[in-house]
Each structure stands twice: as C-alpha cells, then as structure tokens.
C-alpha cells in the first residue's frame, strides 16, 4: 500500500478535506464552463467578500462542536448585534471605536452565558441555546421590530475595501482561521477543546478543567458571531433582527461538510474553511447560471449529501 493511501486511510479528516477540495475544483470548472464571467477576478472578488459572515459563524460553531456541544443561538445573536450596531451608530456615528468592542464583549458574554448554563444546569446544549435564541430574539424584537438604523461611511467601508483586489474581510477571515487553527493545534487550551469533545468524562478524570473549557468554547462562538455581525452590519448598513434566522443551521453545514463530527472531538478549522468556500461558491454559481431558486435548494441538498456521503460510508 502506498504511503499516501495509507495516510488517507488513517486520517479520515484528510479524506474529507480532499473530497471537499475536489468538489471545489469541480464547481469552479463547471462554473467556468457555464459562464465565462464566473472565473473572472471580479466575480472571485465578490465571492471572497461574501465569505466572512458564514465563515465566522461557522468557525464559532466549529469550536463548540469540537468541544462536543452545539450552538443554536448564533443566528439570533448576530441579528441582535446588527440591531445594536446600526442603531448605536445612527445615534453616535463618531463612536465606532466604542461600538465595536462593546458588540464583541456583549457577544462573548452571551456565549459565555450559554456555556455556563449548560455547565451549571446540566441541561443539553441544544435546549439551552435554543431557549437562549428565543430570549435574544424576543429581546431584540422588543427594541426594534423592523430593520432600521444606519452606519457611517467609514464603517461600511470595512465590508467593501479591497487590498490588491482582495477584500479586507477575506484577509481578516483567513488570518482568524489561521490563528484559530494554530490555537487549536498548538496550545494546551486549544487541545483541551478536543479532549473535552472526545470524551468529557475521560477529560475530567485526566484532570482537565472541563467546565471552563465548555464555557470558553461557547464564549468563542459568541465572539465569532460578534465579528460576523460587524461585517454584516457594515455590508447591509442596517440592523435587522431577523437577518440571522437562517444563519443558525447554515453555520452547521460547513462544519460537518468539512469533516468535523457532531459528536465532538474530531475535525478542525481547515475543513470548516473549505466547507464555507464550497457552500458560498455553490450559491454563487447557482445564482450565476440562473437556476431557479427552488432548484437551488434541491441542488444544495444534494451537494451536501455528496460531500458527506462519499467518505462517511467508509466508516464502519
């Protein structure tokens, strides 16, 4: 058996990466065939610009899923934060420097509360975060029912500015993912996310501060939602309580497509990154070739199944 084949057999994660990467290339080629504008710099730039929101929420979800939980409050949180940002900045456009940290702190805090609740109440994270989602959503609606607010020009720019043709947001995303990967792979705290997700009881017996790890993972998820919300507000220019509704489930897809298993303890951010690319590219392609949005759904569903179905069947 060749070394590579052996390696792949060993490392199911590599296989997921490989499959998603191949699908990405196939999509790009298909896009190139279907439309000669698909593989232009312009379109690629657009595509990259869209990555950040889905990318950040999926990254947050990756931390939580790796740790063995799930965060279904992400969407409501993003919605609430866009409302906060747009309204705050409409009131004091000069206080961007204050608004952003406030948003990030609040987001991290909400995440930490999710984690604390699962730890202290010992309630399944699905229930905690779903309940939390309902609370956040209700709270946001209490404040603003309809989209509103506005953002100063300078702030909006962060979503659109490009450096050498590449959107800043995409650079930020790549840097954050790289840091996240480094943190998960090469720091003790990062590794403990895997330990807690692999077997929480074993982690406890091995003397790891399991509760703290859980809270940390949710807090990071909140922080990521905060970053996503900043870029989303900058792009849309308004705060919309409902804007995040679909994001919650969407945030899970790239994670799982990228080979991270929902039971926890296995996977990584590279897979999520590829998953985000795949989903975003697929959406863009389907829009490009004018597939009726109805069939877009069908195709999306099928691609998810293909991405996951090919390799997961090998696990028995």
């Amino acid at each position: 058996m060749s070394a590579i084949a052996m390696d792949i057999r060993r490392n199911r994660l590599m296989l997921s990466y490989l499959i998603v990467a191949v699908l990405l290339v196939l999509l790009a080629v298909a896009g190139g065939f279907l439309s000669d504008r698909f593989l232009t710099w312009r379109n690629i730039g657009n595509l990259l610009q869209q990555l950040i929101v889905l990318g950040m929420v999926s990254l947050g979800q990756t931390f939580v899923v790796l740790m063995g939980g799930i965060d279904l409050a992400i969407g409501s949180l993003v919605g609430a934060l866009t409302v906060f940002l747009a309204n705050f900045l409409e009131w004091r456009p000069d206080l961007v420097w204050l608004a952003l940290p406030l948003a990030l702190i609040a987001a991290t805090g909400v995440g930490a509360i999710n984690g604390l609740l699962t730890v202290v109440l010992r309630v399944h994270p699905l229930i905690v975060t779903l309940g939390m989602s309902s609370i956040i959503f209700g709270g946001t609606l209490m404040y603003r029912k309809e989209p509103g607010g506005s953002v100063p020009r300078a702030f909006a720019d962060i979503a659109y500015t490009k450096v050498g043709g590449i959107p800043i947001s995409a650079i930020v995303l790549v840097v954050i993912f790289a840091l996240a990967g480094l943190w998960l792979q090469r720091t003790r705290t990062g590794r403990s996310i895997y330990f807690a997700g692999g077997d929480r009881e074993a982690a406890r017996l091995n003397g790891l501060p399991v509760d703290r790890i859980v809270v940390l993972a949710y807090a990071l998820s909140g922080l990521c939602a905060g970053i996503a919300a900043i870029f989303l507000t900058a792009r849309t220019g308004v705060g919309d309580p409902r804007i995040g509704v679909a994001l919650t489930l969407q945030s899970v897809t790239p994670v799982v497509v990228g080979g991270t298993i929902l039971a926890g303890g296995r996977g990584g951010v590279l897979g999520t990154f590829l998953g985000v690319l795949l989903v975003t590219m697929l959406n863009s392609l389907l829009n490009f070739v004018n597939v009726s949005s109805y069939y877009q759904w069908v195709i999306q569903g099928l691609i998810i199944l293909i991405a996951v179905g090919i390799h997961s069947s090998r696990r028995k």
Binding site: L182, Q185, R186, T187, R188, R191, Y194, F195, G198, D199, E201, A202, A203, L205, N206, G207, L208, G265, R266
Partner: peptide, 28 residues
C-alpha cells in the same frame, strides 16, 4: 480506560503536560 481514541498516543500520554516550545506553543 480514560483515553481519547481519536487522538495520538503522544497526545494521550501528555494530556495535561504537553511540552511547549517557541512562543509557548506546543512543540510537536
């Protein structure tokens, strides 16, 4: 057993004492 089946032998042995090198990062 209190082991993590998905992780390497090395990592299991050094579960709470992973040696750090440059910048405080774990050195593989």
């Amino acid at each position: 057993l209190a082991l993590f089946p998905e992780l390497s032998v090395a990592e299991n042995i050094l579960v709470d004492a992973q040696p750090r090198g440059m910048l405080g990062l774990i050195s593989n």
